[in-house]
Amino acid sequence: MILEISGLTKNFGGLAAVSGMNITVNDGEVLGLIGPNGAGKSTLFNLITGVIQPTKGTVVFKGKDITGKRPHVIAELGIGRTFQLNPLFPNFTVLQNVISSFQIRPRSNLFDTFFNTPVYRKNEAYILEQSLEILQLVGLYKVRNELAKNQPHGYQKMLGVARALAIKPELLLLDEPIAGMNPDEIDNTIEAIKRTSQLGVTIILVEHNMKILEICNRVVVINFGQKIVEGTPQEIKENPEVIKAYLGSGHDTQH
């Protein structure tokens, strides 16, 4: 068990965006988090990564309580994430985006950095090599020297994943990785996620698109900030509650 969320609650004024959420994530699995718009999926990600502070509840990562820690501290502990919108540094090139995402492993101290010592140079050479490797993994190697903001939407999203991989995460949170992509890009992305998972990274992904279910080991469905069902992709597809959440309850059945 790599991540344990218990009783997590976030109220925005009177609105409970997430209420009493309990989720456990096992080592090495791909966990899907689905639910309609406004169900609280992205809020849950922001709570895990410390972007917003929970009202109640705890988040435990590898046996360590990380509730309410600052985002950069959580990144240091090994939780990487991508964002739904603007997932990158627009004015850096694709390669610079990945290079500047290597902050933790390895990290040079200020003295080495300023005086350009052999330690710093060795670290930077290693970072360059690793960055090119990651770009190859996600399929952005050929556009590495172009500005990130000039890339098509699908590439920008993949670059978000590449950036998150640069922190060498043990747990990777992907926020709608295939939203707005064309079918080709979706296939490539799913391929890249599978490859990442094979490297031993635990993945939680948020998605509307039911297509993503095919790569998940387990799926959690949330609606109105609460977990409604949990199970294998097959069970989820056939679950009447899920169908109700997505399609609404039929008006013609009861009256």
Partner: peptide, 21 residues
């Protein structure tokens, strides 16, 4: 050096830069 690059990264997006540490 990396210090200046990190400052430019923070300028472009503090959310993204905090997510990489």
């Amino acid at each position: 050096c990396r210090i200046g690059w990190n400052l430019k990264a923070i300028d472009q997006s503090y959310l993204v830069s905090s997510s990489v540490g």
